[in-house]
Nucleic acid binder design. Structure first.
Length: 556
RNA sequence: UGACCCAUGGUGUAACGGUAGCACAGCAGAUUUUGGUUCUGUUUGUUAAGGUUCGAAUCCUUAUGGGUCAACCA
């Protein structure tokens, strides 16, 4: 029996295995992870995977997670990004143990550098950027040291102090670790530890004019925070050798780095550099454009935190390159929204239906707010002699399995009556302008005694009661699955039809009370949320995702 | 002509020397006052060649393919 139970459990990913082994071996009493964004852009769905991974791991094994901003490059980093990142992590549903900054450690890092110099493991190099690159060799050719590598400890100490004191201009000197200039790992060829940048830092202001490089900040910050498992993406694999070397020489807490493959998604790009380009060159309206794969864009689009967490969990992690079908993400939003979205009827492209035998002025019909959740109750929908239906829900010459309206055919109007199309009215050009129908009074929804069975059910809106709204329909941002892999500029593959705006759609009056952050399902159309561009003069809805549509017009 | 990482259906991810499974997608059907939901069934896979073993997706070797590394970015 316990055997059966075990088989039901989801197996561990490779990081969970490492953590369990470490815990079992008594290596740590509890684990500590960190999420270390650089505040130079907005978080995207790839980061969400990392967030879910780091916070999820700590949560699962009773540890904690720090939010640490990797802010060692003052020229690209801004407070605006810090705030958006904090918002996004909170919105995703995670709480950090401590809010920390690599810049908190600048003084400590400086002392670490001094220690290396005193031990003859770092030196000040006066070479230019080009010279250093040239002397470093190539991946297939070893590098060679220059004369500065032979400077005395005393001289190095003095020079490094002078760098800090601002005696030199940007680029005049750097501090380098003395590791192995001939290593097959280029990152071990005396990597730069500190560079001079007379730049204003978003937190330390003008206190410093030298800033540590990633390799001399990240591992040390991990160590200072007693991070047990420092999880990063694959491109940092070669950095691990430097990471370990520095921790070893500095004799500080031995944090360990583990790498996993970053999450890629089809029909979008996932690098901050590319996303920044889309924003700066106005291909999108901003970082939170609903077409962007950013957390803020997806939130505005109507994605729920739950669906993103489910996605990250289900997609899993491993060490091989991957590109997940965006359809998986859409599956999880639909799954979540189906349970929670309030149903409303909205006609996007109307054609008028006149119910010729309807004699009442109007009546109010009841309809469930969400068939998946009876607790949401019912609402009233006004019905009258003239209604709108979707233009695509009528065909004069329908194909075989067309369940909608056609001359002489009957359909059910959702939560109302069955109607029959009697006459098609056209203008001079032959366009359908009106449909004249009759209704079956005994077919009223909920009290149908007509005995008539129809295959199709349409959504509709009473003409004189309709309210209008603007809707924004989004499609994939790029025309190809992996724009980053295509020839030439990735921007050449932008989908010109990724946004379709319909200025005026017709909705049932209940939609007038739509609230922000509440999901709606426009019946037979898709899931929508109110956009922040809405005002008292008009509502604007974003389509989060369409409904799954298994109808194939071409039958056969 | 280097080093390192990786290779399981269309996609993602399991199987830890012993029946290749799960999710999405696809296909077929049932139910349905949303062509939605729900339910049922189903197609498709271990990069290749050797070796070790009673037994290999798993271990070894080689090949092939993909990725990463030559920012004073992270």
């Amino acid at each position: 029996m316990s055997h059966e139970e075990k088989k039901e459990e989801r197996s561990l990913n490779f990081l969970e295995e490492i953590v369990e082994a470490d815990l079992a071996a008594g290596k740590y009493k509890s684990i500590r992870t960190r999420f270390p964004p650089e505040p130079n852009g907005y978080l995207h769905i790839g980061h969400a995977s990392s967030i879910c991974l780091n916070f999820g791991l700590a949560k699962k094994y009773g540890g904690s997670t720090n939010l640490r901003f990797d802010d060692t490059n003052p020229t690209t980093e801004e407070t605006e990004y810090v705030e958006s990142i904090k918002d996004d992590v909170r919105w995703l549903g995670f709480e950090w143990e401590n809010e920390l900054y690599a810049s908190d450690y600048f003084e400590q890092l400086f002392e670490y550098a001094v220690k290396l110099i005193k031990n003859g493991l770092a030196y000040v190099d006066d070479s230019s950027s080009e010279e250093i690159a040239q002397q470093k060799g190539t991946p297939t050719q070893p590098g060679h040291r220059n004369k500065y590598a032979d400077r005395s400890i005393e001289e190095n100490l003095q020079l490094f102090e002078d760098m800090r004191a601002g005696k030199y201009k940007d680029g005049e000197k750097v501090l380098r670790a003395k590791i192995d200039i001939e290593s097959s790992n280029m990152l071990m060829r005396d990597p730069i530890l500190y560079r001079i940048k007379h730049a204003h830092h978003h937190r330390t202001g003008d206190a410093w004019c030298i800033y540590p490089m990633y390799d001399f900040a990240h591992g040390q910050s991990d160590s200072l925070e007693n991070i047990t498992h420092s999880i990063c993406t694959l491109e940092f694999v070669p950095h691990r050798e430097v990471y370990d070397w520095l921790i070893n020489k500095l004799e500080i807490f031995p944090s360990k780095q583990y790498e996993f493959a970053r999450r890629n998604l089809t029909y979008t790009v996932m690098s901050k550099r590319k996303l920044l380009q889309l924003v700066n060159e106005k291909h999108v309206s901003g970082w939170d454009d609903p077409r962007m794969p950013t957390i803020s864009g997806m939130r505005r689009r109507g994605y729920t935190a739950q669906s993103i967490r489910d996605f990250s969990d289900r997609a899993g992690i491993a060490k091989r390159d991957n590109i997940v079908d965006v359809g998986l993400l859409e599956f999880f939003v639909r799954e979540d929204l189906n349970k929670s979205a309030l149903r409303r009827m909205v006609v996007f492209d109307p054609v008028k239906v006149v119910i010729t035998n309807y004699t009442k002025d109007e009546e109010f019909l009841k309809s469930e707010n969400n068939p998946e959740d009876p607790a949401t109750g019912e609402r009233e929908i006004p019905f009258s002699k003239e209604i709108f239906i979707e233009r695509e829900d009528f065909m004069e010459n329908p194909p075989k399995k067309y369940f909608r309206l056609a001359p002489g055919q009957m359909v059910r109007l959702k939560s109302a009556y069955i109607i029959k199309c009697e006459e098609v009215i056209k203008d001079a050009e032959g366009n359908v302008t009106e449909l004249h129908c009759t209704y079956i009074p005994e077919s009223k929804s909920g009290e149908d005694t007509s005995g008539i069975n129809v295959k199709g059910t349409l959504h509709w809106v009473s003409v004189k009661h309709a309210v209008t709204a603007e809707i924004r329909l989004y499609d994939r941002l790029f025309k190809v699955e992996n724009p980053a892999n295509e020839e030439g500029d990735f921007k050449d593959y932008i989908n010109p039809d990724s946004l379709q705006v319909v200025k005026s759609v017709y909705a049932e009056p209940a939609l007038k009370n739509a609230k922000f952050n509440e999901a709606y399902q426009f019946i037979r159309k898709g899931y929508f949320v109110l956009d922040k561009d809405s005002s008292t003069s008009g509502m604007v809805f974003n389509r989060t995702v369409g409904l799954k549509d298994s109808w194939k017009p071409q039958g056969k």
